[in-house]
Structure formats: C-alpha cells, structure tokens
Design a protein around this nucleic acid. Structure first.
Lengths: 239, 239
DNA sequence: GTTTAGCTTACATTTACATTAATTCTCACG
DNA sequence: CGTGAGAATTAATGTAAATGTAAGCTAAAC
C-alpha cells in the first residue's frame, strides 16, 4: 500500500511566493511529489500530465476562477481538492464546498493547520474507513475451523460449505457464544418469524449443523442442547 | 453499497438547543439515523451501542473535553469525527486536527456549510477515490491467468477480453477472494443500485464469466455459488 | 413406567440458481 | 444518421441442492 507521502500534489496559485512557501512547507513535512501551476491553462496541462492525487487550488487565478477549474478536473476524474482563498465570503465557501471540494481554507492560514487538513483529506480519500459489516469472524471449535466470511468449515477431513440456514443459525449461535439461545430467537434469526410450526425444522437444521461441526454428531461437544431452554455454542476459540 | 444517508451519525453536545437544531437540519437534508449525547459518559455508551459512522463532537462538555473523547473513540475503532467548537483558538483547532479529527468547525456556522462539510467527510471516508496510477492485480485461477489491468484472461487456448460488467464483477469478487459476496453487493459494484430487478441479469453475467474462467463452466472450480448467500472466488493465486 | 422433549432418518417439496435463446441496447464506423 | 456487431438484458424453462415434513425412535426427568 502506498504511503500518504507518496501521493502527488498539484498546487495551483498565481502568487509565486505562496507556491514557494507551500512547496517548502510540504517538502519539510515529507511530501515530495509536488507540481505547481499559476494559471488555469497550465493547471489543466499539469493535471493531465501528472495525474495528481490531491489539488490545492486558489480561487482567484489570472485566466479564470478556481471553481470552473474544479469542474474541469472533476469532469476528467475524481480527485480531492482543497481550496485556498483570500476571500472569506460565506458565498464562496458554500460554492466551493458545494461543488465537491473537500475543504476550504482562507488565507492567511497556519502552515501547521494546512498540513493537518491536507493529511486529513488524503487519509480519508485513499485510506477509507473500514465498514463494520465487512469482516465476519473466523473461529475454532476444537480442531475444526469455521470461517463465516467464506461460509466454510474446515476439518482434518477437508473443507465443507455451510448452507444458508446453517449459516444463519451458526452466526446467531456465535453471537451468543457460551450462552443459551432460545428456539424462538434462533427462528427469528433464520426465518424472521415466530417459532410456531418450525420446531421440528429447527431441530433438523441443528442436526445438519452438528454433522458438519461435530466429530460425533450424536454426542455433541460444541453445539449443546439445553433441554427445555434452547441451544448454546461452547468451546469457541477466536482466531 | 450503502447510501450516504443510511450512515449513522452521533451528535455530542451539551446544549440541548443546538442538538435539536442539528437534528432538524440533518433530518431535513435526508439523514435519519441520528443519535445524540450530552455528556462524555453518555457519548461513550451511545458510541458503543449504536456504532455510528460519523461523530459530531463539541469540544466542551460538562464532564470532560472532546479531545479525550475523540481518543477514546479512536481506541475502539476508526471513525470520522467533526469538531464543533465555540472557541476559535488556533491551538484548539490544531490540537483537534492533530488528533485525527476530519474537520473543525467553529460556532456559529452556516447550516449549509456544516451539511456540505459533513457530506465531504462521509464521501471521502466511505467512498474513497479510485487511484488511476494504482496497479491492478494479476492473478491465476489454476492454469488461467487474469490481468485486471488489461481486463484479459489467458488460458492455454489463447487470450480473451472481459466485458465491462464481467470486469466489474470479477474485480469485486477478487477484492473479496475466498469470501462470500452477496448478490446485493455484487449489484452495487456493477450497477450501483439495489439487487431488485437484476437477479437474473446477474446470473447471466456470472455464467459468462464462468465461460471465460472455468475449464468446465457447468462445474465451476473457482467461481463458486453459495446457495442462498451469494458467490465467492476460490483458488486465487496472486502473481 | 410413563411422559416429554429432543433426535434421527427418509422422503417430498420448494426454491434458488443454471441455462438457453430471443430481444433490446450501445456505440464505433462509414 | 443509419447500420451492424458485440454487449447487456429479459424471458422462459429446466434442474439439483436446500429445505421442510412426517413418522418412528431415544433418552432424560419425574
């Protein structure tokens, strides 16, 4: 995975002095793939040639404004943009952010703050937050390994797949590992309905799960029945 | 993939009035999974229970400060945070951003700007930029070599190209190699929409992919169906 | 010993997926 | 602006795995 500092940054501003300053600040901070432009024309050319990963964009440019430049960039491809502006008008800020800019900073700004904001934008743009729901657990029951991502059960005899209902059941039992889960709650998880009518069906599925999980299905070690109460999953070792 | 408006937001502020206002603004804008807290204690509880996708955090709280709360959140898991503060001290802004906050907004703020900044943060955090320069993977499925750069499949019989949809499907499956990908997620990846209405279309594309990837398409070795759950790509060997 | 709750097995049914072909869409090219 | 080839979608039908059902069985509880 690329490091944040390997990302390419394009600076667009007509004040040569400012560019020089920004360049210095950014380099000192560890960024090194920097390009700059002082006109819209030049910016478009650089954008196409360098394919920067972030653009710092002044709103006022000699041959046009930053807003239309932003649109031009976005037309080509998605890129994070930070506006730098001398004008602190509400209207401009709203316009810039509304067009899809990632931040809008008004001059004069603290170098430190600029750096932090740049980092924040880069971090989120290229190293997104992992959603909770992405990763499902992997765990062991004795010698058997269960992977809920792939829906597989691996024993020394080989790998088998879980069916939809088996998966739903096992997932629910795993959520409540060590604790008794009532028949009702299991049915809720699998069929979304009440237990009524599914009592026997549930048992059959439990049996099938045991055939996949237990060394001796008739003498279960892990998927234990709690008579009159429900079932529970014991001996879970998380990986 | 989840829509931006389905994301859960936690608001932490001790001014009840402000919470009410924020709640109103956000709801009007389309956000609906909102929770609020007015103390650190409560915030931690809500954070654990609701698992929000974004936190709006006031810096000053009756039983602590926002900065330590931010640290507490980050300890648990990565989450985007926007600071709201009445204080516009440079020091505070730098501290907040330095701790990893995604934005720092000072009160009073324009509702419109807040919304735009929230959207910017959510967009970047959960819908990251696809990098151009990034090298796409090349991998093998048995004797078959797949190059996602050129979108080609090379077997001993020759080289064939993937179509747009086949490519999108395979890319998504590859991202989750070994894991089950639900029909919904695949549709999101290919059409950006919900599964509804595309069920059959998806199947046809899966079939086409199999015809290109599998020695015997009707008896797939790599693109496996997990009945009632989805599909998964097995036996990937990266090059 | 009786009762009750749960187990087990075989078999019927259903559902989800596979398959094929026909139709519609898309877009490069003349 | 048509035209045509390839791609995408829709529709119709087939099929096997997953699920549900039922009937007989077993073992714990009292």
């Amino acid at each position: 995975m690329k490091d944040i500092f390997d990302l390419k940054i394009l600076i667009v501003d007509d004040e040569k002095e400012l560019i020089k300053m920004l360049d210095g600040i950014l380099r000192k901070e560890g960024f090194w793939r920097l390009t700059s432009a002082s006109t819209c024309e030049e910016a478009k050319e650089r954008f196409g040639a360098e394919k920067p990963d972030l653009v710092l964009l002044d709103v006022m440019l000699p041959d046009g404004d930053g807003f239309s430049l932003l649109k031009a960039f976005q037309m080509k491809r998605e890129v994070p943009v930070l506006f730098l502006s001398a004008k602190d008008e509400d209207e401009d800020r709203l316009l810039g952010l509304g067009l899809g800019a990632d931040d809008y900073i008004t001059k004069p700004f603290l170098p430190k703050e600029l750096i932090l904001r740049i980092k924040a934008v880069l971090r989120r743009s290229y190293f997104p937050v992992k959603r909770q729901t992405e990763e499902k657990p992997i765990f062991r029951l004795g010698e058997t390994q269960i992977d809920l991502n792939g829906g597989t059960v691996t024993t020394n005899k080989g790998q088998i797949c879980l069916t939809a209902k088996e998966y739903a059941l096992l997932e629910k039992l795993y959520e409540n590992k060590g604790n008794i889960v009532t028949g009702d709650r299991l049915c809720q998880a699998v069929w979304g309905e009440d237990l009524y009518g599914y009592e026997n069906t549930l048992m059959v599925h439990i049996r099938r799960l045991r055939e996949k999980l237990e060394p001796v299905p008739s003498n279960p070690q892990f998927l234990i029945t709690a008579r009159g109460l429900g079932y529970k999953l014991m001996g879970v070792k998380d990986e």
